[in-house]
Every structure is written in structure tokens, then in C-alpha cells.
Design a protein around this nucleic acid. Structure first.
Lengths: 226, 226
DNA sequence: CCGTGTTTGGTCCGTTCGGCCCATGCAGTT
DNA sequence: AACTGCATGGGCCGAACGGACCAAACACGG
């Protein structure tokens, strides 16, 4: 199609094979276009996490570029599943917002890179190159907060752990519009227990009321807004 | 930079001058790349609504591609301001989610096109061409719901009206984690007034508490989650 | 077997929230 | 001039909420 653009480092990329996964075709096409021109080879594209998992095993790419927020299966969980069956593949996560907790989860899920979408194609290319060489690439600014997170974990406390299954049920019902008495009724438990779960949730999500908890949960992809 | 790619309909576009506005550089670059290659001329790029308004008046583009969710000034309000000073320019809105209310607001603000980001570059190009010719372009599926909306308006009721500026301030502060007393302090008004605004918001958004109101506002793009 | 975490439940207390009534003033519009 | 919408307030009340304690039952891994 195109005559290879005279890019600086394009020749230094020995046809790194990429799998792109994002639910927005516009972004997929933009990525494919620019990255192809920068010397990469896009072997497949996925519209959601489930497709990404399938295509990862069928096309065996070198690097997988995964959007965090995707239908069917979110990027973090997709990364976890891909990493479970393929320890060598490089995983670069893309996200809209620089969320500390999601970043932590993504790294824990086996991601090698984590970039906010507000970065240039050159930065993505550099990140892919770095990951291909076995390094870890983070968006500017995220590295600092990542270190802060590690330091915090080294400290003593565990401010953000994972929400339990029951707590997630409570959260989802709250997000769906239920009050505490209604959640209790739905789950066949007492109001007090619901309040206990909520108190636990507030601690884990660093929230002080249900509104903030639900918003944080939405940000983290724990609950879906109906 | 690039030799113009031998694209099919590129010659049929007499260098339509574009202004791109999106807060995510990745998407901006992808759009600029692909649209330039498709024969358009990108004269400027904006990172937020305020920049878009400025650049619209200084660079006088033919078509403005506006993301709905942007910092500083959201796309809908930016469209309104641009339309107020320039009646001829074509405005194409881009959005992540196909939200009915936002679509209605965008059209009312003077947008000529409304596309979800899950569409191909060719579809965007086609929409820009259509808008350049004075037509209105909507994403597939949105046209139908648009008609449904018009039909609903023809009916009789007005289930969801618009949130006022003051109400939006209150909503945003609530979403940012403020309680009623804190919102009152921030806005230098009494708690009672905040509660009055909230009551009005509940009616308009069909919510019964602040949690649901904020969630609905997030869905509708009224407030941004920080 | 003991510790940890999860889920279930309790009491008490002060604050917040949302609904209900109401009023005043200030802009536009008709 | 009258009407409508918006923003600003008041008081009252019952329900809901969140915190500060606590405790029992169960499962799971070391």
C-alpha cells in the first residue's frame, strides 16, 4: 500500500508482530496505520478482551497492545489469561485515565507496559520497542506514582486490596440504585451486614460514602453502569 | 512529510481544512495521520474545548472534529460557542458511547455530524464529506434512536430536561467527593440551597439519591470522573 | 491447631439525607 | 404587568447513613 515512510528507527524494528485490542475501531485503525508505518507488523486486531485472548494464542504475536476498558472481558483480565498461557509475550496496556489502582492491577496481571492514551505514537512505539527488549515501559508520571505505591506497600499498610465477591455484589446493587435496606432484602441478609460490607468497601476503595465508592468502582471496572 | 497516498476518493476532496479536537493525543495523531492520507488537510489540533473554540476562530477550518468529553470545556459546549460565532463551519462530534441525550444536546448545539468512536476511518471520512456538502451524518443506529427521540418529543412529556449551570456545579462537586455541607461551603451558599438543587436534579435525572444522580450524570457526560 | 480472612450479626450515637411545606428576589418572555 | 424559570433561603421530620466499638461461625493454609 504505502511506501515505507522514512522514519528514524523503523529499520531497527525487525518486524515486531503486534496484536491490537481496543473496542473502538477508530483508535484501532489509527494505531494500525501509524504503527505499521513506523515499521511494526500488525498481525491481528481484537474488539474485546475475549477476542484478544483467542487471537493471542492463534496468531502468536510478539507484543499485544491491550486497551484497559473493553466489553466482554476487560484488558486487565485478558492480560491475566494471556499471561497464564504465554509467559513470553509482551503486553502493553493502554488506558484513558492514569488510575493508580488499575495500573497496579495491570502490572500484577503481567503487563510489561502501561500507557495513557494521551501520548504520542512515537511514545507508543518506544514503549513497544522497550517491551520487546524485555523492559517495562510506563507513561511519564506513572512511574513516580508506581514507585510511591511500591513504597507504600513496603511500608506497612495495605490501603487498596481487592474487593471480595460479596462486597462486589453489594457494590453492584448500590450502583443499580438500591438503598441499604433494599440491598439487604435482595441478598437475604440484615441491614447491618450490608453496612459492614460497605464499611469494608470504603476502606479498600478509599471512599467515605457510597457515592464515592461506586464512582471508584466504576473507574476500576469493578461494577458496570447499567 | 508523506507522499500523498494513492487513495480512491482522495482527489475528490478539494483540500477540506480540518480542525481536530480531542484530549487524547493518541487519537488525535491517528486521526491526523489517516485523514491526511485520505486527502484532508488538518490545519490545527486542540487538546480541549477551550482550545478548539480559539483555534476555530483563528484558523477558520471548514470542518471541526470535536470529541464530546474533553477537559476545560466539553465538546457540546464548545460546539455551541463555535456555532454562535460561525454559522457556516461544519461540526462533527465524536463520542465513546452512543448516548441518546448527549446526541440530542449535540445536535441542538449545532453539530452537523455525530459519530461513535467505534467506526472506521472511511466512515469518518464519509461523514466529513457529507457535512462539507451541508448534510447531516449520524453513526449507524443513532439515526433510528434520534427519530425515536423526535417522536418522543412530539408526544407530550419532557422526562429529561437539561441541568442548569448551578445544578451542574453541585453535581460535579458531589462527584468529586463533597458532602452537602462541603458543597455549600465551596459555593458559598447554605446547605438548604444545595439540597434544593439536589432535589431538582433528582427530578430531572430520574434519580432518588446522590449516588444515582451522579451515575446518571456520568452516563450522560454531564460530569467527569476525576 | 492456630491465625487470618470472610460473612454474618449486634448496639449506640451523631450526622446526613431526602421529602415536605413554604418564601423572596431576580431575571427573561409574553 | 403577569408569568415562568432560576437561585437563594427557612423549618420540620423520619429515614438513611457512617463510625466506633464488638462477636460468632466458618473456611483455608501454614
Amino acid at each position: 500500500m504505502l511506501t515505507p515512510a522514512p522514519t528514524t528507527a523503523a529499520d531497527a524494528r525487525p518486524s515486531i508482530r503486534l496484536l491490537l485490542a481496543d473496542d473502538h475501531r477508530m483508535l484501532r485503525e489509527g494505531l494500525r496505520h501509524s504503527l505499521t508505518e513506523l515499521g511494526f507488523t500488525v498481525v491481528a486486531e481484537a474488539r474485546n478482551g475475549a477476542e484478544a485472548v483467542e487471537l493471542a494464542s492463534s496468531t502468536k504475536p510478539d507484543i499485544i497492545v491491550l486497551d484497559v476498558t473493553m466489553p466482554e472481558l476487560d484488558g486487565v483480565e485478558a492480560a491475566r489469561q494471556i499471561r497464564a498461557t504465554n509467559a513470553e509475550v509482551g503486553i502493553v496496556m493502554l488506558t484513558m485515565h492514569a488510575d493508580q489502582d488499575v495500573l497496579t492491577e495491570a502490572i500484577r496481571a503481567g503487563a510489561n507496559g502501561y500507557l495513557v492514551k494521551d501520548c504520542s505514537m512515537d511514545e507508543i512505539a518506544a514503549a513497544i520497542d522497550a517491551v520487546a527488549l524485555g523492559e517495562t515501559a510506563l507513561s511519564p508520571g506513572l512511574a513516580a506514582s508506581m514507585l510511591a505505591e511500591v513504597r507504600r506497600q513496603d511500608g506497612s499498610n495495605q490501603p487498596s486490596r481487592v474487593i471480595t465477591a460479596r462486597e462486589e455484589e453489594v457494590l453492584q446493587l448500590i450502583a443499580d440504585g438500591c438503598s441499604t435496606p433494599e440491598v439487604a432484602e435482595q441478598l437475604f441478609i440484615s441491614q447491618k451486614t450490608v453496612k459492614n460490607h460497605l464499611a469494608s468497601i470504603y476502606q479498600k476503595l478509599d471512599a467515605r460514602d457510597r457515592t464515592q465508592a461506586v464512582l471508584q468502582a466504576v473507574r476500576m471496572g469493578i461494577v458496570k453502569l447499567s
